[in-house]
Each structure stands twice: as C-alpha cells, then as structure tokens.
Amino acid sequence: MFSFALGGQITGSVLWICEGWRTEQISPTGFAPYLDPQNLLYAKAKGQPNVLAVAEEALRSGAISLVIMELSAPIGLTAGRRLQLAAEAGRSTGLCIISEGMGSNAAETRWRCAPIFDAKDSTLQRWELIKNKSGTLSEWDVKWDAETRRVIVVSEAAQRQGSARMPD
C-alpha cells in the first residue's frame, strides 16, 4: 500500500518491475483507489540483474517519476550506488520492495510497513522509518482515506492500543 499510495501522490508515470517467475500479481482493480492504473507500466524481467538494469534505465530517463522494483536478493554496493546516481540524473524516485534485512547502504530512506489490526479501522498501517540519511527515525500509524485519496496520520494518543487514554 505504501508503494501505491506514494505512486498516487506523484504526478507522472510509475513503472513496476518484477521478476517473471513471481506468481503474485498486482491487481489494478485493487490498487485503482490509490493509483490510476493508466499511469502504471508493468515490466517483467528475467532475473534480478535485468530488473536492476531496467530500473537504472528508467530512473535515468526522467520519463518515469517513480520506479518500483521487487527484489528477491540483496543488492550490492555497486548496484545500489548506480541506482542512486541514475535517480539523481533523472530526478526520479526509486523504491525497492525487499525482504527484512536486505537493505542497501545506498538507500536514502528505508521503511518498514505492516498492516495492524484495529477494531474500527480496516486500513490502519504502521509505517516505520528505519533508515534516514538526512533526518531522524520515527514511526507513524496511518490510515487511508478513500474519499480524499490521502494517507492520514492517526494521532498516537487516541489510537495506541492499550493506552490508558484510549476511549472505550
């Protein structure tokens, strides 16, 4: 949801790159509330080197504002640095979807996003900023507002589970 919410806020096209063997398929009927599927290009590459090459090409071109890649193995220092330089040259954003503990040093920020259960709200998520090169770390509980198509930060005091001040 983080990727789609980010893609929805950005003006311009989004490129989603994944490896061909993956059986999980993003579904446009599902993400349409977040991001208009017309703005999304979907590339299936063979193997991670191709994913990275396509991502670098797309980041550098400047025609794409957000490149989302699904990675299955950690990327090395060279690859990370190249992606970073390409993103700087094309003034675009790259987002890698990775497993826990696979992050690259080149990343500007790293987020851990997970849905959390809440008795009232079925869109509540916890977004933790676990790496930030130019700021402090933090975490937010957010929910999605379908009408305004915006992510809304839920105030901790009211929503934190087990909090003494939580209304009944």
Partner: peptide, 21 residues
C-alpha cells in the same frame, strides 16, 4: 520520453514484457 524508454527497456527484456493494464 516514455515511448523511447519503452523501446530501450524492450531491447533488453523484450518489448512484449513491458505491459500495461
């Protein structure tokens, strides 16, 4: 720019692998 990018990506991974919904 987007079409040129599709072409460039297409030369690497095959033009039919760059898709849209």
């Amino acid at each position: 720019g987007l079409e040129d990018l599709i072409t460039r990506i297409g030369t690497r991974i095959g033009l039919e692998n760059v898709q849209r919904f």
